[in-house]
Simulated assay, not measured.
Amino acid sequence: MMRPSLNDLTAFVAVATHRSFRRAADELGTAPSTLSHAMRGLEDRLGVRLLNRTTRSVAPTEAGLELLNRLQATLSSLDEALDAVSAFRGQVAGTVRVNAPRVAAAALVRDVLLRMAERFPDVTVDIVVENRLIDIVSGGFDAGVRLVGSIPKDMIAVPLARPIQFVCVASPSYLDCAGEPKTPEELQHHRCIGHRMPSGRLYRWEFERAGQELTIDVTGPAVLDDEDLMVEAAMQGLGIAYVPNWVAEAALAEGRLRTVLSSWMQGSEAVAVYYPGHRAVPPALRAFLDVVRDVRQIK
């Protein structure tokens, strides 16, 4: 049997992981038809079907899943070996793939990326914005960003510079018209901008003061799943929004929004970059983590 090429095996992993010739082709910079032809050639050489194909989907067979599981670990080790060698060039290079929710991605853009570009010009930080929790290892990411409390125990966490403090905000025009709530219970008489979580459920607003904790179900004219849009809706006078302070700070500084119920807001929550603790850290990821730590010290 002729040994398959590394390119064909890499292409198979991309197709089997994405379960799509089109998405795999986008990742590899080739045409879906080229990938399809390569997969048929790979199956012919191995003498076994690796992929079940229909007009709408692609899924690995039992043999394909076995090969995928083994190849992922092998290719990861190969990448680590190549990254280790790259350090001898004296210039760190490569790509760091990071999965982060939108608010944390904005913090990376604001606080980290410029310093990365200045210190490590040959490193590309590829940020994928995704609000749902995922397995970064199986997703092919080098690192993720999440609240510290939601990071798996087998990961190593490096805190970001600024923790998240949630705030309730509304426009001056809305508050002049509707009045300012003095307690969380009074939100029942206000228009509130709902927040839909990645799971699909509506977020229940959380408050705390002097040991008393409250969770409030709010109603209003709109439900959104993006914090920037919530801030924009609040600035337009649609109602009160409950958002991370990072998202609203510019509008608050400009006077386009005001905080309400400040004495009822919970304490800040730490946010961290995290990465697998059981594998070697590639030079590009190490450089990224060094910048994150430096930014934290500066802040």
Rank of each mutant, 00 (worst) to 15 (best):
A157V: 02
V148S: 15
G144A: 05
L229H: 14
A63R: 13
E180G: 07
A105Q: 02
C177A: 14
S77Q: 14
D111F: 01
I193M: 06
E180I: 12
W264N: 06
F12S: 11
N7E: 10
A241K: 05
A251Y: 03
A143L: 03
Y174E: 11
V85A: 13
D135C: 01
L257W: 04
T215V: 13
A106P: 06
L160G: 10
V218D: 00
H278V: 03
D111C: 04
V292M: 03
R146L: 09
G255Q: 06
R209Y: 02
R119S: 13
A248C: 08
L238D: 12
G194T: 04
A287F: 00
L6M: 10
L50W: 01
L67C: 01
N131D: 12
M155C: 08
M116V: 05
R102Y: 11
R293V: 10
C177V: 12
H18L: 07
F288K: 12
R204L: 08
G140F: 00
V13N: 00
E254D: 13
W246Y: 14
M39P: 02
D79R: 15
E249K: 13
R162E: 11
E254V: 10
V231T: 01
S138C: 11
A16M: 00
I127S: 02
S138D: 05
A251K: 10
R146G: 07
V109M: 09
D294Y: 10
V295Y: 07
A117R: 14
I156V: 15
A161Y: 10
V273L: 02
R102P: 04
I298T: 15
H18M: 07
A14L: 03
A284L: 00
E186F: 04
L175M: 07
G194P: 09
V13L: 00
K153R: 14
V137Y: 02
L160K: 07
P121I: 02
E27W: 05
A106C: 08
I193Y: 03
F166V: 10
L71Y: 03
P101T: 13
E254K: 09
M116I: 07
L42I: 10
T54H: 11
G90E: 03
D44C: 08
M235E: 14
L9S: 02
V223K: 08
N99Q: 11
A63K: 11
T183C: 03
E66A: 06
L285V: 09
P184Q: 05
S5W: 01
T219A: 15
G277Q: 05
G239V: 02
L51G: 03
P184W: 03
S150K: 15
W264M: 05
